[in-house]
Amino acid sequence: MGLLDTLRTVLGTNAEADATRDADPEDLFGMSTAYVTMEADLGFRSVGAAALCFSGVDSTDFAETVGDVEAILRAGEEETGTAFDIREDSHGWEWVVLRDDDPEDLVTSIHFAADEFIERGYGSRILAAVFGFERAGDDGSDGADSAYWIYSFRRGAYYPFAPQPGKERNQRLEFKLESVLDGELGLEDDESYWYPMWPDRDGGHPWE
């Protein structure tokens, strides 16, 4: 089974069949307080970006839906300064990528985008929302540790992902994140669904 097939299985059909609760876009607002906890308790700050991952459909209606998502985000960009672009990665997944130094604006924009897909009947095409964090090293350098909170729309829950170079995971950090944010976010308690969303290059983000 290839990477794309595995992702389809874990974040896709099997995850939906095994889901213990329905996804709720309102869950995304839990990240607003999680940003504060991540920085205050763990020293992680936002990377100034977040993204919504979805699987496209070859239809005119879906293309119009994506156009409506763009229109909503463009209006938000004028109001809050949240920049965005929509791209496809090397695995064939599509991403709405948002950039803003204000984490609240990122959460709100992710919610707007997800809600539009759902309202148009394409909620099943949304795979995950991904929020990025970084922690300075002991020498003060940026990006010594990277971590992500991933919200699986098929499972209706968050899980941590801490990638390291060479497609290794910092599991000790992931369990630390779980212990600190447990109770603040609705967490995935089945670790088999903590699926890694690897970036295409070391030091990159999953949406790049």
Rank of each mutant, 00 (worst) to 15 (best):
E208W: 08
W194E: 01
A157M: 03
P103Y: 08
T9E: 10
R125W: 10
R8Y: 04
I126M: 14
G203M: 07
E119M: 08
L52M: 09
K176G: 01
D139P: 07
E16I: 03
L187A: 02
T60E: 15
E104Y: 09
D190M: 11
I126A: 11
P163T: 11
P25R: 00
R155Y: 02
F153G: 05
R8L: 04
D139R: 10
D139A: 07
E64P: 02
S46T: 10
D142S: 07
W93M: 15
R8E: 01
N14K: 04
M38D: 02
M38I: 06
Y35V: 05
A49S: 03
G81D: 04
A40M: 07
G56M: 13
S109W: 10
Y148T: 02
A114G: 12
A15P: 02
G123P: 05
A75Q: 15
E77L: 15
Q164A: 09
F84H: 08
F44K: 03
G203L: 08
T9C: 02
E188M: 11
W194T: 09
D202A: 08
R125S: 12
D200G: 06
L173M: 12
A15F: 04
G123A: 05
W149I: 15
F161N: 08
T6G: 00
R45G: 05
H91L: 15
R74D: 00
M38L: 11
R87Q: 11
L11E: 03
G203I: 08
G186S: 10
H91E: 15
A129P: 01
F62I: 10
T65V: 10
E26Q: 05
W93D: 09
A144C: 06
Y195D: 00
T9P: 03
S90N: 09
N14F: 06
Y193T: 04
K176N: 12
E134C: 13
E94L: 14
A129H: 01
T13S: 09
R120N: 05
A147S: 05
F84K: 02
I126Y: 11
A157I: 09
I126R: 02
L106V: 04
E116S: 13
S90E: 15
G166L: 03
C53D: 01
D105F: 05
R154F: 12
R154N: 12
V130W: 07
W149C: 13
L52K: 00
L177A: 07
H91S: 13
D102R: 02
